[in-house]
Simulated assay, not measured.
Amino acid sequence: MTERLDIHDIDPTAHQAVLAMERYVRESGLDPQLYELVKIRASQLNGCAYCLDMHTRDARKAGEEQRRLDVLSAWREAQELFTDRERAAFAFTEAVTRIGDDGVPDEVWNAVAEEFDQ
């Protein structure tokens, strides 16, 4: 897989900002497996093979089951494999990733607010 551009080479300060956000989220106490599942779902929506490869490897290292990775793109139809918290996170991830389409619907916001704190 080939990157079109290397953000670190183009603007190291931009890359540092991205890494700072990554550190913040990782240190927030979010479960590492859920963190990777969210990254995978966003990468699926964005069609980014590089990110999918990276995050699925990281998810497996964090102990994620291959079966859940296999059906993540159809999480709504595999409710028995994902918790309410995970499903709320996936819905929110989809809404934020596609924010230009419809924003974040109230229904999605309310579900994620029930499962996560501010």
Results as ranks from 00 to 15, higher is better:
76 R>N: 10
65 E>N: 07
66 Q>S: 07
83 T>P: 00
47 G>T: 10
44 Q>V: 12
69 L>V: 07
43 S>M: 07
45 L>A: 12
95 A>L: 02
90 F>G: 00
57 R>G: 02
104 V>W: 04
59 A>R: 05
79 Q>C: 01
28 S>V: 07
82 F>V: 02
50 Y>G: 03
94 E>S: 03
105 P>S: 02
33 Q>T: 12
88 A>C: 01
65 E>V: 04
61 K>N: 14
28 S>N: 07
35 Y>K: 01
54 M>T: 12
22 E>K: 15
78 A>K: 06
103 G>S: 03
42 A>N: 07
67 R>Q: 14
79 Q>T: 08
79 Q>V: 06
105 P>C: 05
83 T>Q: 01
58 D>M: 14
83 T>W: 04
95 A>G: 01
94 E>L: 01
49 A>G: 10
89 A>R: 01
92 F>K: 00
21 M>R: 13
27 E>G: 01
49 A>R: 08
82 F>Q: 01
23 R>E: 15
24 Y>A: 15
47 G>D: 12
57 R>T: 13
94 E>A: 03
91 A>W: 02
77 E>S: 11
105 P>R: 04
66 Q>H: 06
20 A>D: 15
54 M>H: 13
53 D>R: 08
64 E>I: 14
106 D>F: 05
29 G>Q: 06
102 D>K: 06
83 T>I: 04
23 R>I: 05
20 A>N: 15
55 H>N: 05
18 V>T: 11
35 Y>M: 06
76 R>L: 08
105 P>M: 05
106 D>E: 14
83 T>S: 15
83 T>R: 04
67 R>S: 13
105 P>K: 00
92 F>A: 07
34 L>G: 04
91 A>G: 00
70 D>E: 14
93 T>D: 02
66 Q>G: 00
50 Y>C: 06
89 A>F: 05
107 E>Q: 08
50 Y>F: 15
50 Y>A: 06
30 L>Y: 09
47 G>E: 14
39 K>C: 12
52 L>G: 05
78 A>C: 12
49 A>Y: 06
53 D>H: 09
26 R>N: 06
19 L>S: 11
42 A>P: 00
94 E>V: 01
43 S>P: 06
35 Y>P: 01
99 I>A: 07
35 Y>A: 07
42 A>T: 11
57 R>N: 12
57 R>M: 10
35 Y>S: 00
46 N>L: 13
54 M>P: 02
27 E>Q: 15
100 G>E: 02
25 V>E: 11
100 G>D: 02
40 I>M: 03
89 A>P: 01
106 D>V: 03
51 C>M: 10
78 A>Y: 13
44 Q>Y: 10
56 T>R: 11
90 F>I: 05
32 P>I: 10
83 T>M: 06
29 G>C: 09
60 R>M: 12
52 L>I: 15
87 R>K: 07
104 V>L: 03
82 F>C: 00
96 V>P: 00
70 D>H: 13
61 K>W: 11
58 D>G: 02
50 Y>E: 10
52 L>R: 04
46 N>S: 13
26 R>G: 03
90 F>W: 03
86 E>N: 00
73 S>H: 13
43 S>T: 01
50 Y>T: 09
38 V>T: 08
102 D>M: 03
92 F>L: 12
18 V>H: 12
80 E>I: 04
100 G>A: 04
34 L>D: 06
99 I>Y: 10
89 A>N: 00
44 Q>P: 03
